[in-house]
Amino acid sequence: MSFTVRDSGDMRRIARELGRMDDKELKKRFRKELRKAAAPLVPKVRASIRRIPSKQRYTPDGLRGTLARATRLEVKTTGREAGVAIRVDGRKMPAHMKSLPSMVEGKKRWRHPVFGNREVWVDQPKQPYFYNVVRAAGPASRRAVYRVLDGISRDIS
C-alpha cells in the first residue's frame, strides 16, 4: 500500500536532466530535499497505526508495531518511476503477514480462524489507518515537493 506524489512529468523531466548532468552535489541535494519535504507523513502514518483500536495494549512486536516498522519513505529520482512514495511495505512484514497492510486498511477481506480452529472463521473489521491520514496531510507535502521541483529546475536552467 502506498501513496505517491507525482505530477505530469516534471519529476521525470528533472530526473532526466539531472542524469545528463555531472553535478553529484545537485543530485544529492535533490534527493535530500525531496525526502525532507515528504518526511512528515511517515510519523503521522505510524502514529495512526499505533492508534488502531485493540483489546491488547500496544507492543512493538505486535501487529501494530510490525505495521509501523514496515512504514517507510521511498524517493526515486531515476527512471519512469521517479517520485516520492510513502509505503507500508508488505515485503518488510513477516512471511505470514505480507498482505496484512491491505487487509487492515480494508482494501482486502481479512478473515481468520478463531484461536486456530479451522472450523470456525471470523471476518476482522477494517481499521483504516493510511489513506485518511495521507489525504489530510498530503496537500502540504505535495506543495513542499513542488517547491523542491521548482527550486531544482531553476538551478538546472
Score class of each variant (00 low, 15 high):
residue 61 D to C: 00
residue 57 R to G: 00
residue 76 K to P: 01
residue 46 R to S: 02
residue 81 E to V: 00
residue 36 K to Q: 13
residue 65 G to V: 06
residue 29 R to N: 14
residue 71 T to D: 07
residue 66 T to Q: 15
residue 24 K to P: 01
residue 41 L to G: 06
residue 71 T to R: 09
residue 19 G to D: 06
residue 60 P to N: 13
residue 41 L to P: 01
residue 50 R to T: 07
residue 79 G to W: 10
residue 32 K to S: 12
residue 39 A to G: 06
residue 37 A to V: 05
residue 33 E to R: 15
residue 53 P to R: 14
residue 61 D to N: 01
residue 17 E to G: 00
residue 59 T to D: 05
residue 69 R to H: 08
residue 61 D to I: 01
residue 53 P to I: 07
residue 31 R to E: 10
residue 36 K to V: 02
residue 64 R to F: 03
residue 78 T to W: 13
residue 74 E to R: 11
residue 58 Y to S: 00
residue 17 E to C: 00
residue 31 R to D: 04
residue 22 D to F: 09
residue 25 E to I: 02
residue 49 I to P: 07
residue 76 K to F: 11
residue 78 T to E: 14
residue 46 R to H: 04
residue 78 T to Q: 14
residue 42 V to T: 09
residue 52 I to C: 04
residue 33 E to K: 15
residue 30 F to S: 06
residue 26 L to R: 14
residue 69 R to C: 02
residue 25 E to T: 01
residue 33 E to M: 14
residue 18 L to F: 03
residue 17 E to Q: 08
residue 16 R to H: 00
residue 37 A to E: 06
residue 54 S to P: 04
residue 44 K to G: 00
residue 57 R to E: 03
residue 70 A to F: 10
residue 72 R to W: 05
residue 25 E to N: 07
residue 34 L to T: 05
residue 23 D to C: 01
residue 72 R to P: 00
residue 26 L to V: 10
residue 45 V to H: 07
residue 17 E to V: 01
residue 56 Q to W: 06
residue 67 L to H: 03
residue 25 E to W: 02
residue 21 M to D: 12
residue 30 F to A: 06
residue 20 R to G: 03
residue 79 G to F: 06
residue 32 K to W: 07
residue 60 P to E: 14
residue 25 E to R: 13
residue 41 L to S: 04
residue 76 K to L: 13
residue 62 G to D: 15
residue 71 T to H: 08
residue 62 G to A: 14
residue 49 I to V: 14
residue 31 R to K: 08
residue 76 K to C: 04
residue 37 A to G: 01
residue 52 I to S: 05
residue 72 R to C: 03
residue 29 R to Q: 15
residue 61 D to L: 01
residue 28 K to Y: 11
residue 38 A to Q: 02
residue 43 P to T: 10
residue 48 S to I: 09
residue 60 P to I: 11
residue 35 R to H: 13
residue 19 G to V: 02
residue 74 E to P: 00
residue 39 A to W: 11
residue 47 A to G: 15
residue 46 R to K: 15
residue 60 P to T: 13
residue 69 R to Y: 04
residue 58 Y to T: 00
residue 41 L to K: 09
residue 78 T to M: 11
residue 53 P to W: 09
residue 46 R to Q: 15
residue 28 K to D: 11
residue 47 A to N: 15
residue 37 A to L: 07
residue 57 R to P: 00
residue 71 T to M: 10
residue 79 G to T: 06
residue 17 E to A: 05
residue 73 L to F: 05
residue 35 R to L: 12
residue 58 Y to F: 12
residue 71 T to I: 08
residue 38 A to L: 03
residue 53 P to F: 05
residue 55 K to V: 09
residue 29 R to D: 15
residue 59 T to N: 05
residue 50 R to F: 03
residue 42 V to C: 04
residue 64 R to D: 04
residue 24 K to S: 12
residue 75 V to Y: 10
residue 50 R to Q: 12
residue 34 L to C: 03
residue 72 R to S: 08
residue 77 T to E: 06
residue 43 P to A: 08
residue 49 I to A: 07
residue 63 L to K: 14
residue 36 K to L: 11
residue 19 G to T: 07
residue 24 K to F: 07
residue 28 K to R: 15
residue 55 K to W: 07
residue 39 A to H: 10
residue 48 S to E: 08
